[in-house]
């Protein structure tokens, strides 16, 4: 684990956050290595925004700890703040500012800020610098927000549902820009999404959140290799109790089982590879009493 510490972009340990009487997050322990593009998925209300806000220091933990790039995110120094870029939900901007004003804002408030690069990027996207932010389309606002976050050359980029409310073209363009930034700077990216479909081409790491707890996290390729869908005749002998069975779906004459690292329940079961979406849904549909201990197994301790 020590070698991993040096290489982790962020680590949380038993992280929990309570608002008034409700726990929005509980017992969250995860590690994301440097250079990854990690997706944080889960249904609405699962605690994704809370977790992301804890990562950038907008909230402080109620319990547990969080460490980003080796420091606590609540370290309120210019140095610490300049290493992390954040794109909040709905990509808020100062609506009365022009795009040029926003770039100037970025330059005035950051230690390093590549204003020229941001300007060229936005011009290439056809976004006029003299237009007020409030007059831009949703996709354009998202691109401007991204440009602001990327121009400060952070080591970690955190984005809260950046693709929500974007049309398919805007979504594709946004991801192109984001991946371009990863290719250029090697920045680690964590973004939340409640849509799983398009994640596999972009992400190599996934964290699944449900009801404030992490139900699955790890390197995507390894998780997919460790899991299998087994198709066989209908069986109801306590399949759900087996620790390696994530989910069993019974039809009239057959049963489909999502298993992890396990042999087939009996010979003759047809193994099939699992898609990322099926994997995530299988874990999300799991009843809560299975507990977090056995499911938040860290997978993907890649060198």
């Amino acid at each position: 684990m020590t070698a991993l510490d040096a290489d982790s972009a962020l680590r949380t340990d038993g992280l929990g956050k309570r608002f008034r009487q409700t726990w929005a997050l509980r017992d969250c322990t995860l590690t994301i290595p440097v250079g990854r593009v990690a997706a944080l998925v889960g249904p609405n209300g699962a605690g994704k925004t809370t977790l992301l806000r804890l990562l950038v220091g907008l909230l402080a933990p109620t319990r547990g700890s969080v460490e980003v790039l080796g420091q606590s995110p609540t370290t309120n120094t210019s140095q610490a703040l300049s290493r992390v870029g954040f794109l909040a939900q709905e990509h808020p901007l100062y609506r009365r500012f022009t795009v040029a004003d926003l770039l100037r804002f970025g330059q005035a408030c950051n230690l390093r800020f590549d204003r020229d690069l941001a300007q060229r990027r936005l011009s290439a996207l056809g976004i006029p610098l003299d237009r007020k932010a409030g007059a831009l389309s949703g996709g354009q606002q998202a691109q401007v927000s991204l440009a602001l976050a990327v121009a400060k050359r952070p080591d970690l980029l955190v984005l809260d549902e950046p693709l929500a409310s974007l049309d398919p073209v805007a979504r594709r363009e946004f991801l192109q820009s984001l991946m371009g930034a990863v290719a250029d700077d090697g920045v680690t990216v964590v973004f939340s999404s409640h849509v799983i479909g398009e994640l596999e081409r972009v992400c190599d790491h996934i964290v699944v959140l449900n009801h404030g707890r992490i139900v699955l996290s790890g390197d995507i390729e390894m998780l997919l290799a460790e899991h299998r869908m087994l198709l066989g005749p209908r069986t109801t002998n306590d399949l759900d109790r087996s620790p390696n069975v994530i989910e069993a779906i019974h039809a009239d004459r057959h049963t489909t089982v999502l298993v992890r690292d396990g042999a087939a329940p009996a010979p003759g079961w047809q193994p099939q590879p699992v898609s990322l979406e099926e994997l995530v849904l299988g874990y999300l549909r799991r009843p809560a009493h299975h507990g977090t201990g056995s499911t938040t197994r860290e997978s993907g301790a890649e060198a």
């Binding site: 192109q176 991946m179 990863v182 081409r201 972009v202």
Partner: peptide, 15 residues
């Protein structure tokens, strides 16, 4: 180039 593929397909450079 990796960057060209990334920009056109919007996929992870590591891929």
């Amino acid at each position: 180039l990796i960057r060209e593929v990334v920009e056109s397909l919007a996929i992870n450079p590591n891929t």
